[in-house]
């Protein structure tokens, strides 16, 4: 296993980066998201995607889903560092705990007329995206699915008059009957 940087070694060792989806159960209190984000920026970790919302109103618990990349040692660090924050109840690495379902929602605005407009609608159908707003010059599509599906759809819309995209970030949950 390669070593991370230190005050004594300059060369950054070549290491394979892994992408992990981490699910964090936290107290829904002011500042808790700032603690999590501050940890990532302060220690130089990556955030690829971050989704947060209250999920258990009675217990005042929120679930934060973070997609991050790093070497195996850094991913371990991220989980351990998260776990020692006081308002954090649990940290689960969904990537290592078996099969997980990951979904993201995107709103995609496309403007155009004629053949391009028809083609956009046709592709939207193929991707099971729904038009939730439209005029004679534009559509707003809603699409849900894995990140790769959304990225593919957005790429296809690019030449057809893509105006802008808004994405929710990844929500993820483990398959099966058990609780996290």
């Amino acid at each position: 296993m390669g070593q991370p940087g230190s005050a004594y070694s300059l060369e950054k060792p070549e290491q394979s980066l892994e992408t992990h989806t981490i699910s964090v159960l936290v107290d829904n209190e002011p500042g808790v998201l700032a603690r999590v984000i501050g940890l990532f920026s302060g220690r130089g970790y990556n955030i690829e995607s971050l989704t947060v919302s209250e999920t258990e109103h009675e217990a005042h618990l929120s679930r934060i889903t973070i997609v991050t990349t790093g070497t195996p040692m850094v991913i371990e660090q991220i989980k351990n560092q998260l776990d020692r924050l006081v308002p954090i109840h649990s940290v689960t690495d969904l990537t290592v705990c078996g099969e997980t379902i990951e979904r993201e929602l995107a709103l995609v605005k496309v403007a155009g007329v004629g053949e391009k407009r028809v083609e956009a609608l046709r592709l939207a159908e193929a991707f099971r995206a729904t038009a939730i707003d439209a005029s004679l010059e534009h559509f707003v599509f809603q699409i849900t699915g894995r990140q790769s599906k959304i990225e593919q759809f957005v790429a296809l819309m690019q030449p057809l008059g893509l105006v802008e995209v808004c994405r929710t970030g990844v929500a993820a949950i483990a398959r099966g009957a058990e609780r996290m």
């Binding site: 296993m1 070593q3 040692m73 371990e76 351990n80 560092q81 776990d83 020692r84």
Partner: peptide, 11 residues
């Protein structure tokens, strides 16, 4: 006592 100290710098 702090798991984040383990495997941080040295395996």
């Amino acid at each position: 006592v702090d798991p984040s100290s383990i495997n941080k710098n040295v395996h």
